[in-house]
Design a protein around this nucleic acid. Structure first.
Length: 88
DNA sequence: CCCCTGACACTTA
DNA sequence: ATAAGTGCCAGGG
């Protein structure tokens, strides 16, 4: 088995970057793919502090279906989600 | 190493 | 359905 080359945050970025357009993954889904299904907390914390243009963090929402939060504004996030969902 | 923070999730009232 | 409390994990100082 390969070793944990990067930190949890790096894994989270990779997972989020893999999210297809018009698709939304919950924090727990991302945390699950990242390697720690219990780290959904850390996922949000990491995304919030490290907002990368290559990472569509707006596709990461809460398990309830709520958009959760967004560095640019939840309203904006919802708008993007709706737009991608319609176009995708 | 210890303490605090945080875009969450789940349970109970 | 809503509100409050609890448990979880990683990053930063």
């Amino acid at each position: 088995m390969a070793k944990d080359r990067k930190t949890f945050s790096e894994k989270v970025y990779a997972v989020v970057k893999r999210i297809p357009k018009g698709k939304t993954l919950s924090y727990m889904e991302v945390a699950r793919r990242a390697g720690n299904p219990k780290a959904f907390r850390a996922v949000g914390n990491i995304l919030n502090k490290n907002y990368n243009p290559d990472i569509p963090c707006h596709r990461v929402i809460r398990s309830d279906g709520s958009v959760g939060g967004y560095n640019r504004g939840e309203e904006k996030k919802k708008e993007i989600l709706k737009r991608e969902a319609t176009l995708a």
